[in-house]
Design a binder for these strands. Structure first.
Length: 686
RNA sequence: UGGGGCGUAGCUCAAUUGGCUAGAGCACAAGCCUUUGGAGCUUGGUGUUGAUGGUUCAAUUCCAUCCGCCCCAGCCA
């Protein structure tokens, strides 16, 4: 794959494979597999695994199988296998003739189970599910042996065969591996390997009423297929000893299991159970709702397989828990589409503009480039006339700072059109909404260049009102409003849904060149974002989905300005309230000071001059307005007081005051705060 | 208080297996450029490599201790 060339990504799994290749562990083979359970749709987390497994096979000249791990008939359906096949194919991977099903190995697995029994390594257990749980012990206490653990090989064989023959009801008996009930690894405490399930299987039908458990089945599937590196997610790390145990006891081909961290994506959930819930509770329109992180959702949203592959390459593979920023996914699709899709003009929230000096009955065709990044994409023609639509947000009656779009008196460029200057506007007196904007145009600026070299700061898109076609546009945004919707376990993750994740715009105006688009087609609407045609779209009812908006530095700037305004408002409110925050308070340096000198200030009738020891190598000079309370200042000498020591020095006509003494004042009296105990001058007051 | 894992810029990953100033993408900020406030170009930065000790001429890398986070008690996968 092209994007895998160049600087090749490296990770711990590749290191392991490199090493195995060097030592000839598997005779130089690399054979991986992607083993989904067909009980749900694939999502971007699976895409990571798919890209990893198939990517490894491609890069190492090996093979990768697609295998359905369908060992639980109660949860699996053909609908899911079909969607999975479609999705893996769509992502661009090819398993050739190696499409497998665990259920194809049921006979073989059954044989292996009997082998285990014959070897005395498995037994039929009659304990109920609850009892098994009880006997298992806990994380810190060992379990105890089942009373059925020592049945004879003959009895086990007989019972197991009768299980297969349907002589028992669901849950009545299970086959268990005989390992170690006191193992610190709970998976090794005689795990169940076969259970009775009278359910018909999506492929095997009613042939079986016993089905193997994951731990038993999976290693066998890998072994049967000759897998070399069985790559799975971290939660199976604890299962590896069991994986190894089965293969060792059976003495059959032994692949190695390697675990990596599953993908977490900000502002989304990636758990089949939670995604199922969103579908079943009609919170989204289905598995392929464009807001879903499913492969089918991303496809309908307009993502390309290539962008997803690049994303999976960029996020890397490691063992630590991580949360990838969804901004990276968005970056990947923008980057891909920027170079590959054509531009069109579409006005999503239209307001009419009348160009007063443009002839009433004239129409002319203007040339527009299809993709500035790709000259080979050519040009097209767009009709222009006296009446056009522009984006409501591209006009302001009172423009904010740095706004360089249309406003009364301002000149802007109509993309590929003319320079126009706003000369007036009409407003609905009731609602205050702008109903029409009046402009004049400069005929010399056709195509968007002015012969006199004058510049305009803004370029806006437009659509001819007489030629525009109507369409519905669906604006999609992140499904959740919080970076990690599952962070707080006490809150239902659905509380974190983004109420604005879908906004439907009904009367959008599009340039006529878009009349014949087909579902799945991708394009950029200039200045707005990347869009694609929804599968529900028809010629008479066009529907576009927004894949991702363009980066909008104006929106960012505007938001920042608003936040700035809000912040200064908050600060003002804080000041007005007279409260300081704990943080501010901690900055105040209150110290114990001892008054060493005190005298009246000549020429002032309220002030005393104090010289105070605050633990420094010199005394501080403080002017305090406390003369009324202390007419005989010498009595203050030797007193301990509380001093605010980190005030800016204040210049007064008598000298500089270098601190402040805390005092309390009532209606007619005033006194300073003093101490009696002998605390060292300079001590912190807390 | 059992077992298994994992800690490197804000985020995701690297670091030639003990060696030069710990790198890259995303995100962020500034500047340039621009007929998309897109794209592009230039620049910028923060890292006590979870912490503390130890071995060594040299530690992200080896050892020890500690701290923090994740997973495991389905007859789900």
């Amino acid at each position: 794959m092209a994007e895998n060339e160049g600087k090749k990504s490296t990770n711990f799994i590749r290191a392991i494979i490199d090493d195995d290749l060097k030592t000839g562990k598997y005779g130089g083979r690399v054979h991986t597999r992607f083993p989904p359970e067909p009980n749900g749709y694939l999502h971007i987390g699976h895409a990571k695994s798919i890209c990893l497994n198939f990517g490894l096979a491609i890069d190492y000249n090996g093979l990768c199988n697609l295998r359905f791990d369908d060992t639980n008939p109660t949860k699996e359906e053909d609908e899911y296998v079909n969607s999975i096949i479609e999705d893996v194919k769509w992502l661009g991977f090819d398993w050739q003739d190696r499409l497998f099903y665990a259920s194809d190995y049921f006979d073989k697995m059954y044989e292996y189970a009997e082998q285990l029994i014959k070897k005395g390594k498995a037994y039929v257990c009659d304990l109920s599910a609850d009892q098994i749980k009880e006997y298992r012990g806990t994380l810190t206490e060992p379990g105890k042996n089942s009373p059925y653990r020592e049945r004879s090989v003959e009895e086990n064989l007989d019972l197991f065969r009768r299980m297969r023959n349907g002589e028992f009801k669901d849950g009545e008996k299970v086959l268990r591996a005989k390992i170690d009930m006191s193992s610190p690894n709970l998976n090794m405490r005689d795990p169940v390997i076969y259970r009775i399930l009278h359910a018909s299987h999506h492929r095997a039908g009613d042939k079986w009423c016993i089905y193997p458990m994951y731990d038993f089945a999976h290693c066998l599937e890998d072994s049967i297929e000759g897998i070399t590196h069985s790559i799975c997610t971290l939660e199976f790390e604890d299962h590896r000893p069991l994986y190894d145990w089965f293969l060792d006891e059976l003495e059959i081909y032994h692949p190695q299991q390697i675990e990596f961290a599953p993908l977490n994506l900000s502002y989304t959930v990636l758990s089949k159970r939670k995604l199922l819930q969103l579908v079943q509770e009609d919170i989204v329109a289905g598995w392929d709702d464009p807001r879903m992180p499913t492969v089918s959702g991303l496809r309908r949203r307009g993502y390309t397989p290539q962008s997803i592959r690049i994303f999976c390459d960029k996020i890397g593979v490691a063992k630590r828990d991580s949360m990838v920023d969804v901004a990276l996914l968005e970056h990947c699709i923008r980057e891909d589409l920027n170079y590959t899709v054509p531009r069109y003009m579409a006005v999503l929230d239209p307001v009419k503009v009348v160009i007063e000096n443009y002839p009433e009955d004239k129409t002319e065709m203007l040339k527009a480039v299809n993709n500035p990044e790709d000259p080979s994409a050519g040009t097209r023609e767009i009709p222009f006339c006296r009446e056009i639509y522009i984006e409501r947000d591209d006009f302001r009656e009172d423009p904010p700072r740095k706004y360089h779009r249309l406003y009364p008196g301002n000149e802007v460029r109509l993309r590929y059109g003319y320079y126009v200057t706003c000369t007036g506007f009409k407003k609905d007196p009731e609602t205050g909404q702008i109903t029409e904007i009046i402009c004049k145009y400069d005929p010399a600026t056709k195509g968007g260049d002015s012969p006199d070299g004058r510049k305009v700061k803004g370029t806006i898109h437009w659509v001819s009102a007489r030629h525009a076609i109507d369409a519905e546009v669906r604006l999609y945004d992140r499904l959740f409003k919080t970076p990690n919707p599952l962070e707080n376990r006490d809150i239902d993750f659905k509380e974190n849904l983004n109420p604005d994740s879908l906004i439907v715009l009904k009367s959008c105006k599009l340039e006529p060149n878009l009349a014949d688009v087909k579902p799945g087609q991708r394009m950029q609407f200039e200045r707005k974002g990347y869009f694609c045609v929804d599968p529900d779209s028809t010629t008479s009812n066009l529907i576009f989905n927004r894949t991702v908006p363009l980066k909008d530095s104006w929106a960012k700037l505007e938001k920042a300005e608003k936040q700035k305004a809000q912040k200064s408002k908050d600060e003002k409110n804080k000041k007005d309230s007279g409260l300081i925050s704990f943080k501010d308070f901690s900055k105040i340096d209150l110290r114990v000071g001892v008054i060493k000198e005190a005298e009246l200030v000549k020429g002032a009738d309220k002030l005393l001059k104090l010289m105070v020891d605050v633990g420094e190598d010199r005394l501080r000079q403080i002017f305090a307005g406390i003369r009324k309370a202390y007419p005989e200042p010498e009595k203050l000498i030797g007193k301990s007081v509380v001093v605010v020591a980190n005030l800016e020095p204040r210049k007064m006509s008598f000298g500089v005051s270098e601190a402040m003494v805390l005092a309390g004042s009532g209606k007619d009296n005033l006194s300073i705060v003093t101490f009696d105990s002998d605390i060292e001058p300079g001590s912190k007051v807390s």
